[in-house]
């Protein structure tokens, strides 16, 4: 369980995350949606102790992330940020292998190799294992980063816009992968998404942020509605029931 209590963060005098209190239970996929600048990434980074908070606490399974040793947390919680510039020239396989670093400190065991192979296979990267990251396309690189986080094999996995740069096929595959991770392996997955329909079809719970505040929280049936989406994004929405899923239409 992740307990977020009264998290507040400001830059200069601008409050970007405003007294967010939220509990994420174990298991399932939670999507965070909201307009640009709503504070989604900042909140996710604070949960994963990448950014210090001004006020409030985040507890993961009872451990305060601001105080727990980094290496202990690294075996429970992992995060992939929205933009990842890597100047280090690593091969895809070496990058993914570093996902095991919290367990092996750089000395992979046979069991680690198995994790690495599985992660590469899950993301369809078997043929690219020997390639350097700077020789990949944007979407391939994104998949390599996700494979690394997957390889870290933590109970809690946070992804900030994991569908960045992915084509439709790979985006669907990615969401299915996350759903399987939650369903079959009991992982708790938190994703920031911009595509409300992916959020609608794949989430167990959706969190809506607006102006740094927690605006709404609930299952897709409660969130994916014309009025709530309109309030969130400030533009007109239609929502249709298609094969049991709620699909938002907003192109017109």
């Amino acid at each position: 369980m992740i307990e977020i209590r009264n998290i507040t963060k400001s830059y200069d005098s601008t409050v970007v995350v405003d007294a967010v209190t939220l509990t994420l239970r174990r298991g399932g996929i939670t999507s965070i949606i909201g307009p640009n600048g709503a504070g989604k990434s900042t909140l996710l980074s604070i949960i994963a102790r990448l950014i210090p908070t001004d006020k409030g606490t985040v507890m993961v399974d009872g451990l305060d992330v601001a105080r727990t040793a980094g290496e202990v947390l690294a075996r429970r919680l992992s995060i992939l940020r929205q933009d990842n510039h890597m100047t280090t020239r690593l091969t895809v396989r070496d990058l993914v292998a570093f996902g095991r670093y919290p367990y092996n400190k750089g000395r992979p065991t046979a069991q680690d190799q198995e994790h690495i192979n599985k992660a590469l296979a899950y993301l369809g990267l078997e043929d690219l294992g020997g390639r350097f990251l700077d020789e990949l396309s944007g979407g391939q690189r994104q998949r390599a980063f996700v494979a690394m986080v997957l390889c870290q094999d933590t109970d809690y996995m946070l992804f900030d816009e994991p569908l960045n740069n992915l084509d439709i096929r790979h985006a669907v595959a990615m969401m299915k992968l996350l759903r399987d991770a939650a369903r079959d392996f009991g992982k708790t997955v938190v994703v920031v998404l911009h595509d409300v329909n992916f959020a609608s079809c794949y989430s167990d719970q959706i969190i809506v942020m607006r102006d740094g505040k927690l605006f709404l929280q609930g299952p897709p049936s409660e969130i994916i509605r014309p009025d709530t989406l309109q309030q969130t994004y400030g533009c007109p929405f239609e929502v249709h029931d298609l094969g049991g899923d709620r699909i938002a239409v907003y192109y017109a």
Partner: peptide, 21 residues
């Protein structure tokens, strides 16, 4: 300490995520 330096070279965020001080 080679692995530590490699991880640090990936940037502070990746390093923190992997539990490196």
């Amino acid at each position: 300490a080679a692995d530590r330096f490699t991880v640090a070279g990936m940037g502070q965020d990746f390093a923190t995520n992997l539990g490196l001080h």
